[in-house]
């Protein structure tokens, strides 16, 4: 029983990270109708900005997380202006290829010896030690991930559901033309959505960086997973991204635990294939 609880906490922490990254991707897809293949690159950059803020600027963990979130948000908004906006009327393949280009560019840039180099970096846990809950041990960092990711998700939900600016994002993803017609500046909403997606990816990266190594390739792996998640949940769906994230995390953690840790990724993607075979439109896509 304790071991199951143990895995449950691990799955919750992993799911929280997946959810934050997937939410940004699904928001951008909803608003721009573009699969942003550079999203994993933003996640990776978030981890490096956290590392750089801690190691080179010498600030604390929380300021480092905020610097990373703001920095990546700014860069994501810039990306929308420089790459996606000019390609808005081009065939769909063009922005996709451009996004993959951005992903490779960011990776090459970070790997360059004069920037961070190809070797992995380590970030010390801001709250070292473990918490013992009746035999279930939990690192403070995992608890921090669970609490922080839930808080961020709650904040995002509040923003989308309770503020007019948030409503413009939902409005634009439900009817772009209708949004323009009521006088919503769709360019501004597009930039804002990219900025939010960047910030979410960076926060996720900053949260998970202390328990994972920071490497230039970390974005590619995450990219694959979050695309699986939003396809699973339904492209553009916010609840779909959250449910999909936790579903993948639980499958990976429990599959890895009961079958073999070496197969954790394989089990996750097998689940994806099975769900899509049964429900090709994803779990939360409207049947249109």
């Amino acid at each position: 029983m304790t071991i199951v609880l143990q895995q449950l906490f691990n799955a919750l922490a992993l799911g929280g990270v997946y959810a934050l990254v997937a939410l940004g991707l699904t928001l951008v897809y909803g608003v721009m109708r573009v699969p942003n293949f550079a999203h994993g690159g933003l996640y990776m950059l978030g981890a490096y900005l956290t590392y750089a803020s801690l190691d080179r600027l010498g600030v604390g963990y929380v300021p480092a997380l905020i610097i990373a979130a703001l920095g990546v948000a700014l860069l994501a908004a810039l990306l929308e202006r420089l790459i996606f906006y000019p390609l808005r009327d081009a065939p769909h393949v063009h922005p996709m290829i451009a996004a993959i280009g951005v992903l490779f560019f960011l990776e090459a840039l970070i790997s360059h010896p004069s920037v961070f180099g190809p070797d992995f970096k380590q970030i010390a846990e801001p709250l070292p030690g473990i918490l013992n809950l009746g035999g279930v041990t939990l690192t403070w960092q995992r608890l921090l991930i669970i609490v922080a990711s839930l808080l961020v998700m709650w904040g995002l939900n509040f923003f989308l559901k309770r503020t007019l600016t948030g409503a413009t994002i939902e409005a634009m993803s439900q009817n772009r033309e209708g949004a323009r017609m009521v006088g919503i500046n769709t360019n501004r909403v597009g930039m804002l959505t990219f900025a939010i997606s960047g910030a979410l990816a960076a926060v996720a990266a900053a949260l998970v960086a202390p328990i994972n190594a920071v490497t230039p390739a970390m974005g590619e792996v995450m990219n694959l997973k979050v695309f699986a998640i939003i396809i699973l949940g339904g492209m553009g769906s916010v609840p779909g991204a959250i449910v999909g994230a936790f579903l993948l995390a639980f499958t990976e953690v429990f599959g890895g635990f009961y079958i073999s840790l070496d197969f954790a990724d394989l089990i996750g993607f097998t689940m994806l294939v099975i769900v899509l075979a049964i429900r090709p439109q994803g779990l939360f896509q409207r049947g249109t």
Partner: peptide, 26 residues
């Protein structure tokens, strides 16, 4: 000058009131 377009172009998953509030976005 406001337009009520052909095909309505509402925000289908948002509540009626939110649709109206977005109409007052300007």
């Amino acid at each position: 000058v406001a337009q009520c377009p052909e095909g309505r172009l509402l925000f289908p998953d948002l509540s009626v009131e939110k649709n109206l509030r977005l109409g007052a976005f300007v």
